[in-house]
């Protein structure tokens, strides 16, 4: 009679597809944010400066960056991570067959998919920016592209994906802890304050601090290791919390 037996893997996969079906709006949000970043913010980031060294030589520098898209994608990643810890998300999953492990795995698969999409689109937006600049300023830009230096281009996509995934897991872990106890909100407030004080205020000492641990890494292998280790730790912490959360509990 009680014949139905699922493997964890199979169920995690099905829960993942349920999540994809149910959360299409998250990807729409990403696209909207990126359009906003491209259309409205990129103008502000494009700076022109002129250097004049006397009659014969003068330069106009125009620097274009897609930092805006990058920042918004990372912001989106954090919010997505946070969103998936909501009680509604949990209730939806638990309306179907699941346990807390498959729930967590499905969330992780979802993050990987979202990071893939976020990473690729953000880096490709850099090319869009170049096209815009080309039409507007009528100039030719030579930077590392897919054709001129494919490895560099691919590594940019990879790094962006890694950061997106990292931000999602940070959001997810914070969200889980807050779901567990609201006291964490206060704690995170304090930590955030201390973090910003120590990281951004010390401008003269660029080669230290928590963020430098990641962006200062020049070896892609070590960078990958660092990111994977961090993600593993965050996954473990969030699962520790998720594994004891009660569902549909007022």
């Amino acid at each position: 009679m009680y014949s139905t037996q699922w493997s964890v893997n199979e169920l995690a996969k099905r829960q993942f597809f349920l999540k994809l079906n149910a959360n299409g709006a998250i990807f729409t949000m990403l696209i909207v944010l990126q359009i906003i970043a491209t259309v409205f913010i990129s103008g502000a980031v494009t700076t022109t400066s002129m250097n004049d060294w006397g009659e014969p030589i003068s330069f106009n520098f125009t620097s274009i960056s897609n930092d805006a898209q990058l920042g918004l994608t990372l912001f989106w990643a954090f919010i997505v991570g946070f969103l998936l810890t909501s009680a509604a998300q949990r209730n939806e999953s638990f309306s179907f067959v699941t346990n807390r492990l498959t729930f967590q795995l499905a969330n992780f698969y979802f993050f990987c998919t979202a990071a893939l999409l976020g990473g690729v689109t953000t880096v490709l937006l850099g090319s869009v920016m170049k096209i815009i600049a080309m039409f507007r300023d009528n100039m030719i830009i030579e930077t590392a592209g897919l054709l001129s230096s494919p490895l560099d281009f691919l590594s940019r996509i990879f790094v962006m994906m890694a950061y997106t995934l990292l931000l999602m897991l940070i959001g997810y872990t914070l969200g889980s802890l807050i779901q567990w106890s609201k006291l964490f909100i206060a704690l995170f407030g304090v930590i955030w304050y201390a973090f910003t004080q120590s990281t951004f205020a010390v401008a003269d000492n660029e080669n230290s601090g928590l963020l430098y641990f990641y962006y200062g890494e020049t070896s892609i292998l070590l960078f990958t290791l660092k990111i994977v280790a961090t993600i593993a730790v965050l996954f473990a912490i969030s699962f520790f919390v998720t594994n004891r959360l009660e569902v549909r509990n007022p």
Partner: peptide, 18 residues
């Protein structure tokens, strides 16, 4: 328990659907 979850359904008015 996955076995219990797969062989059980709990219906109430708080049931969440996407």
């Amino acid at each position: 328990s996955l076995k219990v979850s797969a062989n059980m359904i709990f219906i109430d008015d708080m049931m969440g659907f996407p």
